[in-house]
Amino acid sequence: MFALTVNGTRQQVDVAPDTPLLWVLRDNLGITSVKYSCGIAECGMCTVLIDGTARRSCVVPIEEVDGSAITTIEGLPDDHPVKIAWIEKQVPQCGYCQPGIMLQTVDFLSRVPHPSETEINNAMDDVICRCGSHPRIRKAIRMAAKITASQGG
């Protein structure tokens, strides 16, 4: 039995210790905003925040995160700067990759609150968006940084 705090709610799951967190969230807890796409940590679609750090849940075994706090996209407030910016800049096309990319952005901006263009490119160079929303992701990250700064965050 493993314990997780998912978006503020304590959960217990009875799964094999090597079960990837991705499948615990999807299969056992029904949180399908965390997406499967590659299964080998190449694409970033399964990214969640584990104790505030963005990680790829498809390669994180549940036993490694026993007792951790997990944040998925539902765990961010509806008016979170990243969500506001993603809507304002009309970022998603198919949208399948976006929750993971947004969560990676939250982690990135927490570490680099005033990113340069190069820092944004480097921080987002390991995620896949097949639709090609990249130009808008860049704009949304800049906007989210501005909103956060204006909130004194």
Partner: peptide, 21 residues
């Protein structure tokens, strides 16, 4: 116009085929 499907996609509410149950 703001795309009507974007808010749900940003909030993680959109149910894709892979998520359907």
């Amino acid at each position: 116009k703001a795309r009507l499907d974007i808010p749900d996609k940003v909030q993680g509410k959109t149910v894709y085929g892979f998520d359907f149950t």
